[in-house]
């Protein structure tokens, strides 16, 4: 035995052990273990057959589980009932530092001084400066990971005169959107564009209570807001017609469609930007300009810039 090991005096083992007859429990355990091994073998064969005939995920999963469980169960039963595994006591030695190794700061400082390392202040300074310079030089190429955002967060593809299309690029007609209808629209030439996604709603005439300077932005009850939630950028796609509000499915920020998409609930810190649109005589829409402010979630210099 290794130093530090003691045998449990109550359950000593080792040395000559008398061979005693197998008990009934042990016999049962032997049979059970054997059956479990057979189950594993059969399941393994089954998996091979399953591969050849192309069985399904469920069959494979059950067979694999049986194969693992058979083997694991057999081992557990074997060790529990058929192996003698006595309780052992191991001494625990206190964890303590080696007294011979003096690693006190004073000792280390003394060694440093003795070696003449700390004397050369100038060179030490330059050592740190050169390490810093090297690390910086290696870190700088991290800027290759992606373009810096620049003005990209402030602009969308909407411009004055952009015709309004659906996700497939087809022109949107007013007749396609009944009262309380909603459609996701994009500027012509950029269907599906993440930053430009916009909801076009028809709330019917006379209900909108937009600020006076936006009165002309929503012809005949058609009103368009950025679909990018001002909270975390999810598409604000749930329109609850009876309350006339738009809800974000991610974090339930809620915007009052009639009132310029003011926030009525949830974590969004500002209204959805409104897109000024005009209804053409042929029933299609054009944008009178881009969004007057940046779309999407907040970032530090968001409010300092204007829209396109």
């Amino acid at each position: 035995m290794t130093a530090g090991m003691e045998r449990d005096p109550d359950r000593a083992y080792g040395g000559p052990r008398t061979v005693r007859p197998t008990t009934t429990t042990e016999r049962r355990a032997e049979v059970f273990v054997g059956l479990l091994f057979i189950a594993t073998i059969l399941a393994a064969l089954g998996l091979i057959v399953s591969y050849i005939i192309g069985a399904n995920t469920q069959v494979d999963g059950v067979l694999l589980a049986v194969a693992f469980a058979g083997l694991g169960g057999a081992i557990v039963v074997w060790v529990q009932y058929l192996m003698h595994t006595p309780t052992m006591i191991e001494a625990r030695h206190p964890i303590q530092p080696n007294p011979a190794a003096d690693v006190s700061p004073g000792q280390v400082a003394m060694r440093e001084a003795e070696s003449g390392f700390t004397r050369r202040r100038m060179l030490i300074g330059m050592l740190f400066a050169s390490v810093g310079g090297l690390v910086t030089a290696i870190a700088v190429p991290l800027f290759s990971l992606g373009p810096l955002p620049g003005r990209a967060l402030f602009v969308t593809k909407w411009k004055k005169g952009s015709r309004v299309v659906d996700v497939n690029g087809n022109l949107v007609h007013a007749s396609q959107i009944p009262i309380n209808g909603i459609m996701t629209v994009f500027p012509e030439g950029a269907p599906g564009d993440a930053m430009s996604q916009t909801v076009l709603l028809n709330v019917g005439p006379g209900l909108l209570q937009l600020p006076a300077d936006r009165a002309s932005w929503a012809p005949q009850g058609f009103v368009a807001y950025s679909k990018l939630c001002t909270h975390a950028g999810c598409p604000v796609g749930l329109f609850r017609a009876t309350e006339h509000d738009l809800m974000c499915p991610c974090h339930q920020s809620t915007f009052d469609v009639l009132d310029g998409a003011q926030v009525t609930f949830g974590p969004a810190p500002r209204p959805l930007p409104q897109l000024p649109i005009q209804l053409q005589p042929d029933g299609t829409f054009v944008a009178l300009g881009g969004f007057p402010e940046p779309v999407g979630p907040a970032f530090w210099n968001q409010t300092s810039g204007g829209g396109a």
């Binding site: 494979d60 694999l64 589980a65 694991g72 169960g73």
Partner: peptide, 20 residues
């Protein structure tokens, strides 16, 4: 042996979950 058995039983449970 107990640990090996426990590993195989864990694998069995995961296989069952993954299959069904």
């Amino acid at each position: 042996f107990r640990s090996i058995g426990a590993f195989l039983l864990t694998a069995a449970v995961i296989a069952l979950l993954g299959g069904l």
